[in-house]
Amino acid sequence: MAIEVRIPTILRQYTDGQKAVEGSGDTLAELFADLETRHSGIQARIVDGAQLRRFVNVYLNDEDVRFLDGIDTKLSDGDSVTILPAVAGGMA
């Protein structure tokens, strides 16, 4: 199950500069754990315990996952995940 993950500039140090990588998992939490196996260090920058870090926004097909099920949000094949720093306060 392939999911495209778009990586923001500040996290590209973990992806050898790649703007997008592929990963897999049934939920976002599983996806981030899968990314960690190839991009060591990235998971801790996104997740803090059982939640997203405060100043990180994650979007599933452009929808803010904080309004879905957070890191427990379910994923399907072909989904697109975007990680962004919460610029401009993130308004949340």
């Binding site: 452009d62 929808e63 803010d64 309004f67 879905l68 975007t82 962004l84 308004m91 949340a92």
Partner: peptide, 14 residues
Amino acid sequence: LYDASVLTTRFSVG
């Protein structure tokens, strides 16, 4: 003016 409780969800559009 922003009150998050009014919204159901938010999309971020590139």
